[in-house]
Amino acid sequence: MTTSKLLTADPKFCDGCRMCELVCSLHKTGWVNPYLARIRVTRSAAGAPRPVICWSCPDARCQTACKVPGAIYADQTTGALVIDDATCTRCLDCVTACPFKAMWVAPSGEVLKCDLCGGDPPCVQHCPRRPANSLPSLPYPKQASLKYVERRK
C-alpha cells in the first residue's frame, strides 16, 4: 500500500447531526438523501449516535466474499476498495460479509460503498465535530468524530 489515508470515526464525539450522510449523497448523486449515502449514523439502543463507516480493512471481507472478478478493486490513488457497478452482479455477498455493516443497497439496487472520494472526502470536511472546525470552542478539545488519517503500513 502507498501513503494513502483512511477514515476513522470516534462515536464518543459524534453528535448525530448526519452532515456526513447528507453531504455524501449530495456529492455523489446531486440529491440529498441519507439512503444514498456511503456513510451512515445509526443510534445505539440507548439513543447514542453511532457513525458507521468503511474502515478500509486489510484483507477486506467484502473483497474476499466477492466472486465476480474486478467487481471490487483497489483504487490506485487512495487505496480504497471500490465497486465497479457495471461489473457488479448485485449478489450482495459483500454487503452481508461486511463486519461493520458499512455497505448498503440504494433503492436502485446499486451497492453503496465508501470510496474515499479521491482522497478529499466531503464527509470529513463537513463534520462539525472535527478539530479544525470546532477548536477552540469545544469542551473536549481533542475530540473529532470523523477523521481522515494516515494508514498504518
Binding site: C17, P128, P139
Partner: peptide, 23 residues
C-alpha cells in the same frame, strides 16, 4: 450540568453543525 451530568453532544435533528443539545 457539564461537570456532573453530561454524557455527550447531540444535534436535535439532521443537518445541523451546531449540535447544541446533549445527553
Amino acid at each position: 450540568f457539564a461537570e456532573n451530568l453530561a454524557v455527550g453532544p447531540l444535534a436535535c435533528g439532521p443537518g445541523c453543525i451546531s449540535g447544541c443539545s446533549g445527553t
